[in-house]
């Protein structure tokens, strides 16, 4: 479904991703793991067209999108939930959700999608008219995911959805992500919570300093010595 070929992302002189190639198949959950500053977020930003890659190719359903504008890529079906959620705090929950659909060419279906989002996250229905800055951290994450779903993603990219959340809420969020995948949604998950990410992912890529270190089935990687030592803190 999505393939990056040897992409390189840099901010001025600082190289964030140097020659990364990923593949995400239809219906998969793919985890992108690695330490802080490994280039995980930059990879996502490059796929979404927010920070266009300097070189390399990004193919989505066979189409080259590496030079496309971010709003085009969004409409094509690649939606990301950014780290830190980036909710519009001056607006209501309702407005935040509707914004997810505003950029689509047929936002008329928004009502239908909204009902769907409510069934996944009933709390958003309860808080529909509240200002977003009155929500708790967990509710904000659900709002961010809900807003992303309003964009009717084919490929849904989530950046650190567990960040700053209580363990119980993290479980709930991950359960929803698995639920979305069960309904056929393809997911790219960027996580520092490596154990949880590998538990729900099909496949995973481990990157460090902008380059690929290991890739494979998530179950296999859970047993990989390198990952056990560096990320799960239990030497094999």
């Amino acid at each position: 479904m999505l393939e990056t070929r040897d992409i390189r992302v840099a901010y001025g002189q600082v190289v964030a991703v140097s020659g990364l190639s990923l593949r995400i198949g239809q219906g998969e959950i793919v985890a992108l793991i690695g330490p802080n500053g490994a280039g995980k977020t930059s990879t996502m930003m490059a796929i979404g067209g927010v920070v266009p890659p300097q070189s390399g190719a990004v193919l989505f359903e066979g189409e080259h999108i590496e030079g496309a504008a971010s709003h085009y890529i969004y409409r094509r079906g690649i939606v990301q939930v950014p780290e830190g959620r980036m909710i519009f705090s001056d607006m209501t929950v309702r407005e935040n959700l509707l914004l997810g659909a505003d950029a689509l060419t047929q936002p008329a279906d928004a009502e239908e999608t909204l009902a769907d989002v409510f069934s996944l996250f009933p709390v958003l229905k309860e808080r529909f008219r509240s200002r977003a800055d009155t929500l708790s951290g967990g509710q904000l994450q659900m709002l961010a995911i809900g807003r992303g779903l309003m964009g009717r993603p084919k490929l849904f990219m989530l950046d650190e959805p567990s960040l700053g959340l209580a363990p119980k809420i993290v479980d709930e969020v991950f359960e929803r992500i698995t639920g979305l995948n069960d309904r056929g949604m393809t997911i790219l998950l960027v996580e520092q919570n490596v154990r949880m990410a590998l538990q729900i992912a099909h496949r995973a890529y481990l990157i460090e300093a902008g380059a690929l270190i290991e890739e494979g089935e998530a179950k296999e990687l859970l047993k990989s010595e390198r990952i056990l030592e560096s990320y799960l803190g239990t030497a094999a």
């Binding site: 709003h71 909710i87 519009f88 001056d90 607006m91 914004l99």
Partner: peptide
């Protein structure tokens, strides 16, 4: 209106606006 939401979104945070697929130049 949806137009107004987009204007306020861009006003609050350009990058977030881009992330919800808003064409900021437009």
């Amino acid at each position: 209106t949806a137009f107004g939401r987009k204007v306020r979104a861009v006003g609050e945070n350009r990058k977030s606006a881009q992330l919800v697929g808003i064409d900021v130049n437009r």
